[in-house]
Amino acid sequence: MSQDPAAGSPTSDAPDHPAYEVLRPVTAAAGVVLAANPSGMTLDGTNSWILRAPGQRGCIVVDPGPDDAHLDRLREQGPVELILLTHHHLDHSEGARAFSAATGAPVRALDPELCLGAEGLRAGEAVGAAGLDVRVLATPGHTTDSLCFVVDGDHSVLTGDTVLGRGTTVLGDHHGALGDYLGSLDRLAALPDGTTLLPGHGPDLPDASQTARDYLAHRKQRLEQVREAVRRLGGEPTPRQVVEIVYADVDESLWPAADMSVAAQLAYLRESWS
């Protein structure tokens, strides 16, 4: 689960995605293969990222995505040295076990339960493979195990569902999700200007730090709307009661996605008021 389809979102002038299952080079070290699993929550589909230093045959695959023919397309990209997961949601991780079995590559993630043939990742760790050093950035909020990967020397960062190429992300249902998420956005905003953003869904964007600042501004605006709805409703309204006000102009079929984000915002506000 990724996009909050009910939320306002930063706009992008990035090019449209290519055809499904075709490698599209994006930076000197990163290319993307788009999985054919489009939906209201995955945008055009899941971006599986192929990382390798120039001149290297081996590669790192980030988020192999669904367990279907998509994995065959990823295997065609060359010897796989390592599989990384940005978080546990199935649209990113479902194919990891089968892909590991097919390629012999270990799987690493923050959650040791998702790892195969390797230990769990640690915040701040530098992972070396395919001629690259990939730095692990802990970015909880969308999920407790969400990670971003900074590709040193490539001026790029893979953001999973923490920041999307279009739209805004759904917050997790864990306690403190919004506070976690705002801190994660601060960490991304501190990256050098011009760091290319390589998201889990949607098009790549030219400046991760600016996009994170845009996300922060959007979250603060949405938080104020929720605060005003609580004032109007009085007492302790449910997330759905707030959604009915804040997202009144959005199709009701999209409200369940907004429920999760509003629940996190209400918890954040209640803690600030206590």
Rank of each mutant, 00 (worst) to 15 (best):
M1T: 14
S2M: 01
Q3H: 11
A6I: 02
A7V: 00
A7L: 10
P10F: 08
S12V: 14
D13I: 11
A14R: 03
H17K: 09
E21T: 12
R24Q: 15
P25T: 12
A28N: 04
G31H: 11
G31L: 11
G31M: 09
G40C: 02
G40Y: 00
L43N: 06
L43F: 05
L43P: 01
N47V: 00
L51G: 04
L51F: 10
R52Q: 05
P54A: 05
C59L: 13
I60Y: 09
V62G: 00
P66F: 04
A69F: 11
L71W: 08
E81D: 15
E81Q: 13
I83G: 02
I83K: 03
L85A: 01
T86V: 11
T86D: 05
H88E: 14
H89C: 03
D91T: 14
H92D: 08
H92N: 14
S93N: 04
E94V: 02
A96V: 08
F99N: 03
F99C: 09
A102T: 07
A102M: 15
T103L: 03
A105L: 06
R108G: 00
A109Y: 02
L110S: 08
L110V: 05
D111F: 05
L114C: 09
C115P: 12
L116Q: 13
G117C: 07
E119I: 03
L121R: 02
R122L: 12
G124C: 10
G124A: 07
G128T: 12
A129R: 07
G131C: 07
A138C: 12
D145R: 00
D145H: 01
S146M: 09
F149H: 01
F149P: 02
G153I: 08
H155F: 11
S156K: 01
L158W: 06
D161L: 05
T162Y: 05
V163L: 14
L164P: 05
D173S: 14
H175Y: 12
H175V: 13
Y181S: 03
L182P: 03
G183H: 04
S184I: 05
D193L: 11
D193T: 13
T195A: 03
T195H: 12
L198Q: 02
H201W: 00
H201R: 02
A208K: 06
Q210I: 11
D214K: 13
H218P: 04
R219S: 07
K220H: 15
L223R: 13
L223D: 08
E224T: 15
V226N: 00
R227L: 06
E228L: 15
A229D: 07
R231C: 08
R232H: 08
L233I: 09
G234H: 14
G235K: 11
P239T: 03
P239D: 09
V243Q: 00
V243C: 08
V243D: 07
I245G: 03
V246G: 01
V246T: 06
A248K: 14
V250C: 05
E252S: 10
E252H: 09
S253A: 14
A257D: 04
D259M: 09
V262K: 11
A263H: 07
A264D: 05
L269N: 09
R270K: 14
S274K: 14
